[in-house]
């Protein structure tokens, strides 16, 4: 895949739904025009593509600029929802990575003493704004006293570790 195609793919992903087709088509034409112009000066296509990318700037920045320039009022309902989902998706990924990291660390520490038993409670899915939310309870049983520790909350799962320590 050429640098230009990679750039256009990333740009498409970063743009709000409803603005992708036309905007990417315009930037694609920009690439073709710029490469043709530079080729007229003897520049090879790969180098011309890299130069064009440098002049355009990062695809995420271009997409953010579009959203900022249009403003929430001008985006329309589909665009506003898409822009919100794009931001939410980024936040969700960050929270998910953090939650998984903490969960792995906690489980690792707990498992050094005794291997716990793991029970999975029945999943009770709920739907919020079209996103299925599942509650998953992991119970780690050791022996006597009980400790509870929340290790993370994500848009798709709520994890709770219940440990019975010796």
């Amino acid at each position: 895949m050429s640098d230009a195609e990679t750039y256009l793919r990333e740009l498409r992903r970063a743009l709000p739904v409803g603005y992708r087709r036309r905007f990417v088509a315009e930037v694609r034409d920009h690439f073709e025009s710029a490469v043709a112009a530079e080729a007229g000066h003897g520049m090879p296509r790969p180098e011309a593509e890299r130069l064009t990318i440098e002049r355009l700037g990062p695809p995420r920045a271009v997409a953010d600029q579009l959203v900022a320039d249009l403003g929430s009022g001008a985006l329309g309902p589909v665009g506003r929802l898409s822009a919100a989902l794009t931001a939410t998706r980024l936040a969700a990924v960050a929270v998910l990575v953090l939650a998984v990291g903490v969960a792995v660390a906690v489980i690792d520490v707990r498992s050094t003493a005794k291997t716990p038993t793991v029970q999975r409670a029945p999943e009770s899915p709920a739907v919020r704004n079209g996103v299925e939310i599942r509650r998953l309870v992991l119970t780690l049983t050791h022996a006597q006293a009980t400790k509870q520790q929340w290790v993370g909350v994500t848009p798709v799962r709520i994890l709770r570790l219940t440990q019975t320590a010796p």
Binding site: G57, Q65, L66, L70
Partner: peptide
Amino acid sequence: LGEGSVYPALRRLEA
């Protein structure tokens, strides 16, 4: 010009 800023600006002018 930051060429990537031109297309969003054109869209803003159109809006």
